[in-house]
Every structure is written in structure tokens, then in C-alpha cells.
Design a protein around this nucleic acid. Structure first.
Lengths: 141, 141
DNA sequence: ATGGTTGTAACAAAAACAGTTACAACCATA
DNA sequence: TATGGTTGTAACTGTTTTTGTTACAACCAT
């Protein structure tokens, strides 16, 4: 089980737009060649990021550009923008037996702990901004 | 994306064994009817939990029983026992373009943050023991 | 020896992801 | 206003992962 690569592709895409956007026109073809995937994958990613209000994409003339300040965009925002997880992170088996004392109470016993774990993950993602990544990237360049 | 139900099935299975094990013989059929899945699913779960040293399973005569103290078994132990995640939780797209400044450095920029998020999740799972769940369950019964 | 059980292989079905082709809609600009 | 490059999206394929099922040999207390 892994969290879909849509997430890291989206981060990669945003870094390209925010860091290289002044130098180059950021078309889906350009970004696709940096990420090394099919341009359609990038267009889908751009659609999601646009719907989340993080970037803008010019139809026709082409090119993606920043909308939000990179300080305001966290990894969590990107993670939700590309729908990595639909609601609960942990999967339950359906219809446990209500006749059984365990089956009847398994949700009551487990749910809060699983929610805590998911929240811990998400809080960590909220603590990192696009701006943080850009600073780190600039040191490496 | 969701974490496989093998995990919650395994927790359910262990609660059954630890809480009802004195009253009933815990066969795969018995547990399967509480969880409401095919008995083979439970046998596979029991195999994993046995391999992790948490329980013992009697072939032939049948029945599963506790080995480890419930205080010593955390949700994380169960999570790893059933292989919810193989190594990294977050998936990367393969072979980003090394000619591109972003592609070349995307791992250096992202990896540690993703590892932190994964660790936060896992630490939360480590903080809950089977014993905690049993106490909560006893209140509800 | 037997009856109920485990362990596991083999396979089918379903769901999620990833990748691809195709093409209409769009728009700066020549 | 025609054009060339681009986006947006539908439709489809292939792959992988997960889940469910049947089948049966090996096991063992009685």
C-alpha cells in the first residue's frame, strides 16, 4: 500500500511552476519532461491544482502560473488537491457481525485511534510549505 | 487510497483471541463469522500474526491463542505484521529527469518531509496497545 | 481412523492507478 | 481570420493490489 504518486507528481509540478516559471513557459509538455511522465498526467494534475486555487492555467495560449503565495501552500493542501485519500485513511471490512461483542464494538474501540494517526500524518504535511521546499531547492542549485 | 483492511481485520482478530479466547475455541471459522469475511482471510491473518510472534495457532486440533502480553503489542506491531505498507508510505514517480534542476533534486527536497509524516503516523500507532483496546472494550460490554 | 482444523496454492473478481490516444475547444499572434 | 501550439477531457488499455473463493494436503486430539 502506498499513497499515489499523484501527490509527489503534484509537488514536483508546483516546484517547477514556482521556481522555473519566470524563465520558461510552463506547459504540460515541459513539466512532463521534467517529471518524466505522459503530458496528460500533468494536465490532470494541473486541473486539480487549479481547482484548488493554487495555480492558474491558460487554456489555448498555454502555461501554468502561481496564484497563491508559496508561504500559504502546504504539502497538505497539495495532498488534498489531488485526492490522495478519500475521507478515512484506514479501511474497514464491511458489516462486522453485530451479534458478536467484538464485531459490535470494533468501530467504537478503534476509530478514534485511527483518526489520531491520520491527523498526525496530516499535521506533519501541514507543517511544510512550498516556500520551505523552494528554499531547500535553492541551496541545492 | 486507503490502508488495506487487513490491518483492521487483524486488530479485530486479536481482540477476539485475547478477549474471547478463554470462553471459546478461536478457530478461523469462529473469527470469520465475527469479522464477517471468508475464513481463509482469517487464516492468512493468523499466519501473519503468528509469524510476528504475537499469537500461536494450533494446526490440526485448531484454535489461536495469545503469546505476547497485550501490553506489549501495539497497533504498529499489528500494522507491520500484516504488511500494510512496504517500506515508504509515499509513492514516487520513477526516473525524474536528471537534466532538470527540479527532477534532479526532488528526492533531496521531499524525502525527509515525507519520512517525517510517515513517522508521525507510525508513532501514533505505537502509542496504542492491545491492552488499551481491551480496556475500552470491557467498558462497552 | 476419523472429523474438524490449519496452511497454502491457485485462481477469479473487483478496485485503484497509471499510461495512452484522440480530439474538440481555446487563444495569442501573425 | 487563419493557424499553430496548447489545454481539457473522454475513452480505453494495461498493470498492480486487494479481496474473495474453491480446493485439498497436512495435521492432530480423540
Amino acid at each position: 500500500m502506498k499513497i499515489t504518486s499523484r501527490f509527489t507528481v503534484a509537488v514536483h509540478t508546483l516546484l517547477a511552476i514556482y521556481v522555473l516559471g519566470n524563465e520558461y513557459k510552463m506547459t504540460s509538455d515541459f513539466i512532463a519532461s521534467s517529471v518524466n511522465v505522459n503530458p496528460v498526467i500533468i494536465r490532470r494534475t494541473l486541473s486539480s491544482l487549479k481547482a484548488a486555487g493554487i495555480i492558474d492555467v491558460k487554456a489555448g495560449s498555454g502555461g501554468a502560473m502561481p496564484v497563491q503565495d508559496p508561504d500559504a501552500v502546504t504539502l497538505y493542501d497539495i495532498y488534498t488537491a489531488v485526492d490522495c485519500v478519500d475521507g478515512d485513511l484506514f479501511n474497514f471490512h464491511e458489516n462486522p457481525n453485530p451479534e458478536c461483542p467484538i464485531g459490535k464494538n470494533i468501530h467504537a474501540v478503534l476509530d478514534s485511534h485511527l483518526a489520531d494517526a491520520q491527523t498526525a500524518l496530516e499535521n506533519e504535511l501541514k507543517s511544510v510549505t512550498l516556500s520551505d521546499l523552494m528554499k531547500r531547492l535553492n541551496i541545492l542549485l
